[in-house]
């Protein structure tokens, strides 16, 4: 298992520093929550790590430097992400979605043939995310929460070692949140997980460690209790709850 090490990361849009010199270390197997007010640079940080926006500084995952590589190369190095709005392939079935996610390393001949059987990793992921009964449904027909789970399932079959989840429980019911949190625990058994979240209850229940971002900088870092006790954090973000 590998950890994520970010050093002096900067993302500048037209002179505005959305991420302004962030240092971050996520230990292997950690479930790290990134929190912070709107505009703190959480999503931009994830965008930079996954190659979607240009950044300076250094992002290392294990022994590999990620900055400067194209998106699909970074994905192949075991870094996967989800988006604030679930992006699944709506016209394809749940099974097809997962099968595509499992196949980035497939050769031309495999690609040009039809899928005759379901890959083991896909079968396992279907069970883990609880969508085995819906495998032949078009992903577009899934409920919101199920789409998010499908996305996480796609990361599992993609065999990523670092999951970056952007607000995975937004819009979910209470039960769905708990199920998602439990899923994160299962997933983090042999992977590193970074979650951007606004939901403080969800964070308290499932975070191992927390990083608070504010105006593109790291404001505070530590366990949930430590972060909550930090007066600076209380001032800008959490409030006293």
């Amino acid at each position: 298992m590998s950890g994520l090490v970010v050093r002096d990361l900067r993302v500048v849009f037209d002179g505005f520093a959305a991420v302004d010199g962030v240092d971050l270390e996520v230990a292997p197997g950690d479930i790290r929550f990134l929190i912070g007010p709107n505009g703190a640079g959480k999503t931009t940080l994830v965008d930079a790590v996954t190659g979607l926006v240009k950044a300076t500084g250094s992002v290392r995952f294990g022994d590999d430097e990620l900055l400067g590589r194209p998106v699909h190369r970074i994905a192949r190095m075991g870094v996967g992400r989800t988006f604030q709005t679930a992006t699944v392939f709506e016209e394809l079935t749940v099974l097809q979605n997962l099968d595509i996610a499992a196949g980035a390393g497939r050769g031309a001949l495999t690609l040009l043939r039809r899928r005759r059987s379901v890959p083991v990793s896909v079968e396992e992921a279907l069970e883990t995310i609880g969508l085995a009964g819906l495998r032949d449904k078009p992903a577009g027909a899934l409920a919101h929460g199920q789409k998010q789970w499908l996305e996480i399932g796609m990361l599992l079959v993609q065999d990523v070692k670092l999951l970056l989840l952007d607000e995975p429980v937004a819009g979910m019911s209470h039960d769905e949140r708990d199920a998602t949190g439990a899923l994160l625990r299962v997933v983090s058994a042999d992977r590193t997980v970074v979650v951007i979240e606004h939901d403080m209850d969800f964070m308290r229940s499932f975070a191992n460690t927390v990083t608070v971002l504010h105006a593109g900088k790291v404001l505070s870092e530590g366990s949930v209790a430590q972060v909550q006790a930090d007066p600076a954090v209380q001032q800008v973000y959490l409030g006293v709850s």
């Binding site: 996954t50 394809l92 099968d99 040009l112």
Partner: peptide, 28 residues
């Protein structure tokens, strides 16, 4: 028909509907 029913055909539809997502799965 073979191209459409193959895994490639599924991938092609995926690219049509969400190119960015496919990129994040490790494909070009």
């Amino acid at each position: 028909r073979q191209l459409m029913l193959s895994r490639y055909g599924e991938l092609l539809v995926a690219v049509r509907d969400s190119e960015e997502r496919v990129r994040f799965l490790g494909y070009n």
